[in-house]
Design a binder for these strands. Structure first.
Length: 426
RNA sequence: GCCGCCAUCGUCUAGUGGCCUAGGACAUCGGAUUCUCAUUCCGAAAAUCACGGGUUCAAAUCCCGUUGGCGGUACCA
């Protein structure tokens, strides 16, 4: 029976490295028709952050990494650890000193283990190991005791955790044995590094998952990208749904080499997911994302125009602002255009627009101004760019004619007039 | 310091003794398409496979050593 768990400590907001640990544990459980649980390791009362647990739960939910049983909170089961610590004293493998209970490390021999990652054998000489604390003087267990007790009781197998735990593996194996428990299999995941090549951690200042969410990243893109940080699916397909990952994932294919977290590729992948989405779906996602946006109920027609142009949901805002708000004209923007007799041309454009039959059809609109540019001997692209600036105040927008159609005839005329007035004023 | 893990393009990686004058993806740089920006499509550049020694007819792939990076060395997790 496969049972895995994600066991974060609530010492800060859930960070991106935790996503991969949780994801791999989740994949192993789902693939093996096993269970995936959540355990909160809150035995360090000094570093405890009250909001952290909620943050972890919310992010797991957002990511779609649903756990099965009740959440296990270590601080609620202190007596349990105390009982086992006492048992170890009675077995004479532990002793009390200055209010804490210490594990007596044997000083001879070796502890070996085959790690599931890379199927490598790791060995530790006991001569180099020191006694360690099982139960702190405040009555809380250390990670070492809590891990052994909980993962035994939860029947966790395999134990999936970060590589930073590998060094303390002999402590754990010996504790399992001293208590008469079966030692589970271990998978020590290679570390995820920052661009400075140091371990990515909250103490190191790694970004929290909720920040990625606020930045407009999609949960499926985050999951997909994180999965690839240390694992390659059998064929070279890179875009994988959670279901596909479950089908293909195998711990034996996980690399033993640390990987650098590269946000550029995450961004690309996020854009890839956005582009593959239907406009309806993207509209829905954007509306959920833009909770405070005053015009979020009117975005649907804009979505197809920006789908190929945004990498993150948040990119929607700067790209479409001009649609909902009056542009701020800047003479410098006009000056940078390839044509300079702005006013004259705009007046002609305005004349043309006023005579055009409503509603303006994009094809007709385009044809009309292509003809006008020929007539005026202005390059078509340059004229379009002038219209763009007059209508939006910007040199970069979604396709012009479609944008104008969304703006409406009246609003467009108004803006062209305003831009003419603006140019007269300066 | 000691212990442990790791070592292929800038980054993620393919590669498990011959198919590797090392393949893909992101990023970068060109070009095509185009009303801007993107998208899309082509193309280029980019790794003496960390280094040194073995083993072998043959090594990125196996062995040893060195170097480097990282992790651990807490009554933190």
């Amino acid at each position: 029976m496969i049972k895995t768990r994600f066991a974060p400590s609530p010492t800060g907001m859930m960070h991106i490295g935790g996503v991969r640990t949780a994801l791999y544990a989740y994949l192993v459980a789902r693939k093996g028709n096993g269970t995936f649980d959540l355990r909160i390791e809150d035995t360090d009362r000094n570093r405890f952050v009250p909001e952290a647990q909620k943050d972890i739960e919310a992010n797991l939910k957002w990511l779609g990494l649903n756990f099965d049983g009740e959440i296990i909170v270590q601080s609620e089961r202190k007596e349990l650890y105390q009982k086992y610590a006492q048992e170890l004293i009675e077995k004479d493998v532990a002793y009390r000193q200055e209010g804490a209970i210490w594990f007596k490390m044997p000083k001879e021999g070796q502890v070996k283990s085959i790690d599931l990652i890379g199927e490598r054998e790791v060995a530790f000489n006991l001569a180099e190991q020191k006694d360690f604390v099982l139960l702190k003087s405040d009555g809380f267990p250390t990670y070492h005791l809590a891990h052994v007790v909980d993962d035994h009781l939860m029947e966790t197998n395999p134990v999936i955790r970060g590589d930073e735990w590998l060094s303390s593996l002999p402590k754990h194996i010996l504790t399992f044995k001293a208590l008469g428990f079966d030692v589970p299999q271990y998978a020590h995941l290679p570390l995820i590094l920052g661009t400075d090549r140091a371990k990515l951690s909250k103490r190191h200042g790694a970004k929290g998952v909720s920040e990625f969410r606020k930045d407009g990243y999609l949960p499926e893109a985050i999951l997909n990208y994180m999965a690839l940080l240390g694992w390659t699916p059998p064929d070279d397909k890179e875009i994988l749904s959670l279901e596909e990952m479950i089908a293909l994932f195998d711990l034996k294919d996980v690399h033993s080499t640390p990987a650098v977290f590269d946000i550029t590729k995450l961004e690309w992948m996020n854009g890839e997911y956005i582009r593959q989405m239907s406009s309806e779906e993207l509209t829905k996602r954007l509306q959920e994302f833009l909770v405070d946006h005053p015009n979020k109920d009117r975005i649907a027609p804009v979505v197809p125009l920006i789908k190929d142009r945004i990498k993150k949901l948040s990119d929607f805002i700067p790209l479409t602002d001009f649609i909902w708000e009056k542009p701020e004209y800047d003479i410098e923007v006009f000056k940078k255009l390839k044509i300079q007799n702005h006013q004259e041309i705009l007046e002609k454009i305005l004349e043309k627009m006023e005579t055009m039959k409503k509603p303006w059809k994009t094809e007709v609109f385009e044809k009309t101004f292509r003809d006008l540019s020929d007539e005026m001997q202005v390059k078509t692209g340059n004229m379009f760019q002038l219209i763009r600036v007059a209508v939006s105040g910007q040199t970069v927008t979604p396709p012009l004619f479609e944008s104008i159609q969304i703006l409406g005839e009246e609003e467009t005329l108004k803006r062209i007039k305003e831009s003419v007035e603006f140019l007269q004023a300066v």
